[in-house]
Design a protein around this nucleic acid. Structure first.
Length: 337
DNA sequence: CTGTCTGA
DNA sequence: TCAGACAGG
């Protein structure tokens, strides 16, 4: 998923509390996918309501976002629109990889195998009403939900460039290519986290990556960064075999742009001009409204508990925390609603 | 992932 | 009180 920029960019570890008062444009699809993949039982089955609808993502959004608000963060959720045409090839490829993983999951599950979870996660795919349900929940919780015309990361980056958000929240680096001034990764409750399977604990912190200072350090432009990404591979092209982030950087710095690099390696990239433009002149809309509302407490409870079988005690508790935290934010931070 | 319960 | 195990839907 996304572009592998490796360690080209410096990642600064920060505490969640350092984002207090900041607006973060969260890549909702990316986050949803993360929840869908991770929130599962040991045999790999996701959380499911009595109608057979997946609810892992709803659980994730409810609890995590409440925690973010308690930290004083003001989240905006940006959803994907229609994917660009050049993405179709990779989307199809991912689909077949998932289908294969799904078969292996069934096999492992049948024999109670240890690798069931791994294959289940690899088979994760968004289906049914998952996106609609997530939008509905987030809106009821009072967050701005923005519909991107095309790529959510592009729209989120645009919002941040406009100064309407401090950063884009995503696990992928793609937002940098779209010009996001800052990307925040691991936007979750920080602290010790156990790796499933082994008894290993890792101290997970948020990571901040800054575009301008990163480019300055590498002594390249954003156009050149996009060229590096094209060599390494993006969601729209497979990249050149044998070229990783470091080699790509060297080649682009040597030749100035991708044309020379392709000449040296005797390769080419189909639809190169279009993909470049996709990153540099992305399909985004200035027509978005960022407005926080008071959480619709009873509607959230009704939606999650009546429609999706969540426990009323748990949801009520979370919603109370959310209400309190957003009122707190209202008083001590800038205007929320 | 996150909240909750438990056993020292 | 606080890791660690476990369940959530």
């Amino acid at each position: 998923m996304g572009v592998d920029l490796g360690d080209l960019f410096e990642r600064k570890e920060i505490e969640l509390s350092e984002l207090k008062g900041k607006v973060i444009a969260i890549d909702a699809y990316n986050t949803l996918y993360q929840f869908l993949s991770i929130i599962r039982q040991r045999d790999g089955t996701p959380l499911i309501d009595s109608h057979g609808e997946i609810t892992s993502h709803l659980s994730g959004f409810l609890y995590r976002t409440t925690n973010l608000v308690e930290e004083g963060i003001k989240p905006i959720f940006v959803f994907d629109g229609t994917p660009p045409e050049f993405k179709n090839a990779i989307l199809e490829e991912r689909k077949s990889i998932r289908a294969e993983a799904m078969l292996k999951w069934e096999e492992e599950k049948a024999v109670g195998g240890e690798e069931a979870l791994k294959y289940a996660q690899a088979s994760s795919h968004i289906r049914g009403n998952m996106i609609e349900d997530a939008k509905k929940l987030l809106e009821l919780m009072g967050f701005p939900v923005i519909q991107a015309p095309s790529e959510g990361e592009a729209q989120a980056a645009f919002i941040a460039r406009n100064g309407d958000a401090y950063a884009v929240g995503s696990q992928d680096f793609d937002a940098l290519l779209f010009g996001a001034p800052v990307v925040v990764r691991n936007l979750a409750a920080t602290g010790k986290r156990k790796l499933p399977g082994k008894g290993i604990y890792v101290d997970v912190k948020c990571e901040v990556i800054e575009l301008e200072s990163g480019l300055r350090k590498l002594e390249i432009t954003r156009e050149q960064l996009v060229d590096i990404a094209l060599l390494v591979g993006t969601d729209y092209n497979p990249g050149i075999k044998g070229i990783g982030p470091k080699k790509a950087l060297k080649l682009i710095k040597k030749h100035g742009s991708i044309e020379g690099a392709l000449g040296e390696t005797g390769t080419d990239i189909s639809h190169m001009a279009e993909i470049r433009e996709l990153f540099l002149v992305p399909d985004v809309t200035p027509d978005y409204e960022i407005k926080w509302k008071k959480p619709a407490s009873s509607a959230v409870i009704e939606f999650l508990c009546k429609e999706h079988d969540f426990s009323e005690a748990r949801v009520s508790k979370a919603v109370e925390r959310l209400v309190e935290a957003s009122e707190e934010g209202q008083q001590t931070l800038d205007k929320w609603f």
